[in-house]
């Protein structure tokens, strides 16, 4: 912003000179040809969905405990995904993006997990992803309870926490329902915009969790 402030007369002369120079340059450079429209093939960047191994892929593991752990580890690729982790923060502030940086603007979970009474999640997040691009949304947009925080915990710790009645606030049946059928969880596979979705599909994920339960729900160390 600082322009040297010489005596005024110099300024005006400089400006006129400057204008003249531009004029000359403009005339010299004038015959600039600009491209005309032409047909180009659409270069769509396809949405890359990381695959999730089906339950059958684990049939070869004979030891039931090892099989259970392997199933959970595969499901863990979803649990550990930023689309899921971002709403299971350790603090009152959710995170955002694949880098899982603090949510901008600063927001707080509030008494019901749907935002501070004076700045609700619904101030910005609506019932659906908006214009498919910018602001994600879901009718149940909500933070996980702080007792259900996953960030900063290993997969094994997360698993123990899921089954700790003091911390999970959820029965095993409810847990399966949450993972396999909950619409807000389902958002992780349809996050909109350029956000990479969670691996596989919600059905595959649900099947892994169900199979894991059937194998006695062992967790990794």
């Amino acid at each position: 912003m600082k322009l040297r402030r010489p005596r005024l007369s110099c300024l005006s002369i400089a400006m006129i000179l400057f204008a003249l120079i531009i004029l000359i340059v403009a005339i010299l450079l004038r015959p600039l040809t600009l491209p005309k429209p032409e047909a180009l093939s659409a270069a769509f960047a396809p949405v890359v969905v990381a695959p999730l191994k089906p339950v059958s892929a684990f049939n070869a593991i004979v030891d039931p405990a090892a099989r259970s752990v392997a199933l959970f580890q595969e499901a863990g690729r979803v649990i550990r995904h930023p689309r899921c982790m971002n709403c299971h923060p350790r603090t009152d502030r959710p995170t955002q993006t694949d880098a899982m940086r603090p949510h901008m603007p600063a927001v707080a979970r509030g008494p019901d997990g749907a935002g501070d009474p004076h700045l609700r999640c619904a101030t910005c997040h609506n019932d659906a992803n908006f214009t498919g691009r910018d602001v994600p949304g879901n009718p149940q947009w909500l933070l996980a309870l702080i007792e259900q925080a996953w960030q900063g915990r290993s997969l094994g710790e997360t698993c123990r926490q899921l089954f700790d009645p003091a911390r999970s606030y959820i029965t095993r049946a409810e847990l399966l329902e949450h993972m396999a059928n909950d619409a807000l969880v389902g958002w992780a596979w349809h996050p909109g915009g350029d956000r990479p979705p969670a691996p596989g599909t919600q059905a595959q994920f649900g099947a892994l969790i169900a199979a894991w339960r059937e194998t006695d729900a062992r967790w990794p160390a």
């Binding site: 901008m104 101030t123 910005c124 997040h125």
Partner: peptide, 26 residues
């Protein structure tokens, strides 16, 4: 244009919302 700045805040049924991220249909 993405609910970051709040310059477009209006009220919908008395609740503040960012009008850049609310569809006409809603």
């Amino acid at each position: 244009g993405k609910a970051q700045c709040g310059a477009c805040t209006v009220h919908a049924d008395g609740q503040p919302v960012r009008s850049c991220s609310l569809s006409l249909a809603d």
